[in-house]
């Protein structure tokens, strides 16, 4: 079963990381990701730009409204996500813990994926 691991963290903190801290964290995460990839469990991985680069389309009205900034003003922001193949919640949590050890701070939201279409244009 596929799980999405959604990464939430304080953007202010992540943006304040030094280059060394940034490089160390990414290197540690790469180790975990390589392990997942070797096991054939790693799907797409995305790191999002800071929410200062976000734009929101409010489509609950006609015409839709375009506003600068992220959808939700929260203390911690959605900064990225992983798609990982897991046998169940237990393994998903285990994977999230491993990623969390490589990159402490913030939270991971673990959500089972209902539909996954990795290739655009397919039905």
């Amino acid at each position: 079963m596929l799980y999405a691991i959604l990464c939430y963290h304080s953007e202010e903190q992540v943006c304040a990381w030094s280059r060394e801290r940034e490089a160390d964290t990414m290197a540690r995460l790469a180790v975990v990701q390589r392990k997942l990839a070797a096991a054939g469990r790693l799907g797409p991985v995305a790191r999002l730009m800071p929410t200062s680069a976000a734009t929101t389309l409010r489509k609950d009205r006609e015409p839709p409204l375009v506003v600068d900034g992220p959808f939700a003003e929260t203390k911690e922001q959605l900064l990225g996500f992983y798609i990982v193949e897991c046998t169940g919640l237990e393994q998903a949590l285990e994977t999230a813990r491993e990623l969390g050890e490589a990159n402490p701070g913030g939270s991971y939201e673990i959500r089972p994926v209902a539909l996954f279409n990795p290739v655009s244009g397919t039905e």
């Binding site: 943006c15 280059r19 800071p50 929410t51 200062s52 506003v67 600068d68």
Partner: peptide
């Protein structure tokens, strides 16, 4: 480098608090 990093951090923070100002985005 630290000064540049600080300037970027504070500008990003302002941009997050005051979205919708194109000059602030331009400066960042």
């Amino acid at each position: 480098n630290h000064l540049c990093g600080e300037a970027i951090r504070l500008t990003r923070l302002l941009l997050r608090l005051f979205p919708g100002d194109p000059e602030m985005s331009g400066l960042t």
